[in-house]
Each structure stands twice: as structure tokens, then as C-alpha cells.
Amino acid sequence: MRKLGWQQWLVLTLFLAALIVAGLFGVRGVRHALYWSTHRDVPIRAWMPVPYIAHSYRVPPHVLYQALGINPSHPHDKRPLRVIARDQNRPVEEIISLLQETIARERASGPPPPAPRARPSEGGTPP
């Protein structure tokens, strides 16, 4: 067999490193795909407007607007939570926990949401 020079060793090392990187990202991607095929409740973040959260958690938007003290007759309020928090002079974390409590109450009182195959309590944390 032909002896490898230092340039070939360098290319071989880079080749193996590229394969390892591809493998790691591939495995992470597959784990994410498997996790999110059975879980639906995404964490609430400061950029999200109320209709997006209502859509993600499958609760009526007016319930969330009411919890935040916003007139539900104004359904197209697209302000992100960050802006709502600033306008109401409250920390955004407080708004997020208020919404989480409201969603939990709404789900406990109403019929179970359609589609999801795993409840958040069974889910653990995303990979």
C-alpha cells in the first residue's frame, strides 16, 4: 500500500472530522424529529403574539386576551408578549407564567385538545 504524506493525512483527518460533524448533527436532527412528532406544546417566548400562543396550545385567543386584561373584542392585537409586558409595565416572565396558568386552567375545564399524542406532564424536556 502507498505511504501517505502529511498532506494526505491532513485531508484524511478533515474527512473524518466532517463525517463526525455530519453524524452528530444528523443524530440530533433525528432526535428532534422523533421528539416533536409526539409533542406539541412549545415553550412560550417573548416574541410570540397572543394569537400564535393560542394557536400553538389550541385554546381560544379571547381567553388569553382576557387573562392579560386586553379587550377580547380586539382580536387582531399582534403585539409580541415583550411589547405587551412593556405597555403594562410588568416583567415578561410574569406574563408568560400568567398565560401558562390560564392555559392549564382552560384545558382542565374544557375537553382535551385534539391531536397531541403526549401530554406535557409526560413529555420531559426536548432533546
Binding site: 478533515l14 463525517l19 455530519a22 440530533r28 436532527g29 428532534h32 416533536w36 412549545v42 400553538s56
Partner: peptide, 23 residues
């Protein structure tokens, strides 16, 4: 209803593909 998570997953596959292409 879960776009951020899908975005993260697509990002993983993009880098996996880039790694394979480079390899």
C-alpha cells in the same frame, strides 16, 4: 404550532448535509 422547533431540526439537517458534502 411549533415552528421554532422545526427550524432547529432543519438547521441540524442542514449542517449534517454540509458535513456530508464536505466529506
Amino acid at each position: 404550532d411549533r415552528v421554532e422547533e422545526v427550524s432547529e431540526m432543519l438547521g441540524d439537517f442542514t449542517w449534517a448535509f454540509a458535513g456530508l458534502l464536505l466529506a
